[in-house]
């Protein structure tokens, strides 16, 4: 048997995004699209029909000029663990054809494009709008299809797609580690957005592993997750030193204690 006790314990991959560092440059979005063969149309200004697995929201403190503040909030798929972290993510539990699944070994919510038949129930279920439907056939300008990566299959029209935490990178890293008879190391499996972020705002790793950076970061007093009250149990944590940003992560009734 190779590997230590970690081998038996399930991994729980997740992210901690430091919003204080995020400049809203959009490198994560572009890196993601380039890594995952995300298509693009001639007009992408209708953001309700624009596939961005990673999307950077610009959120505001809703105050009038000159007290307005902005904050950028990158939103990948949250890979929700669902109630009690049992793997019944909002989307996974509703997919009628098991085309999206919760991998208990990694905590990653997968999407099987060839099985999805496009009912879009998962999109209705996801409060983060992390899921995107291929309303159009993906079309690349002549020749540009040569820049597509074989590690991620391009999606056909009529199916739902979303961020996979670059699962193919995990597979590649795992294969390599297997051949070398060892475990995948923290640095070996990093998502494209993490790798690309020029500000180093994104940290990715195993939330269950005390040796990984995310393990400590998620415990920061300034850490929060989006819509925790819904008990979706997201695996993406955010850090912000600004209270209004942390408060924007959830909904509060007027007199609620924030």
């Amino acid at each position: 048997m190779k590997g230590g006790h970690n081998n038996k314990k399930n991994k729980k991959f997740g992210m901690v995004i430091n919003l204080d560092k995020c400049t809203g440059c959009g490198s994560c979005m572009v890196a993601c699209m380039s890594e995952n063969n995300v298509p693009f149309k001639k007009d992408e200004t209708n953001k309700l029909d624009s596939i961005t697995w990673m999307r950077v929201y610009k959120i505001t403190n809703k105050k009038k000029f000159p007290d307005t503040e902005f904050c950028f909030l990158p939103r990948p798929c949250m890979h929700c663990g669902g109630h009690g972290d049992h793997g019944h993510s909002p989307c996974v539990s509703v997919c009628p054809a098991t085309a999206t699944d919760y991998d208990h070994e990694t905590g990653i919510v997968s999407q099987i494009y060839t099985r999805c038949f496009g009912c879009r129930y998962c999109m209705a279920a996801c409060p983060y709008h992390a899921r995107y439907f291929n309303w159009w056939d993906p079309i690349w300008p002549e020749g540009m299809e040569k820049t597509l990566s074989p590690n991620v299959s391009p999606r056909m029209r009529g199916v739902v797609e979303k961020c996979s935490f670059c699962y193919h990178r995990y597979q590649l890293a795992k294969e390599k580690a297997y051949l070398e008879e060892r475990e995948v190391e923290e640095g070996e499996y990093q998502t494209a957005c993490t790798e690309a972020c020029p500000s180093g705002a994104i940290t990715f790793g195993d939330l269950n592993n005390p040796e990984h950076k995310v393990y400590k970061l998620k415990k920061s007093p300034n850490a929060f997750r989006l819509l925790e009250k819904l008990q979706t149990n997201p695996k993406v944590y955010y850090i912000s030193s600004k209270k209004w940003v942390r408060d924007a992560g959830d909904n509060y009734i007027l007199n609620d204690k924030k």
């Binding site: 572009v30 380039s34 020749g143 540009m144 820049t147 020029p198």
Partner: peptide
Amino acid sequence: ANDGKICPLGLSGLQLLYSP
């Protein structure tokens, strides 16, 4: 010059190669 990172335009440079 950039120590491992690059801006969004640079990341998308391959689209210049096959630009229509």
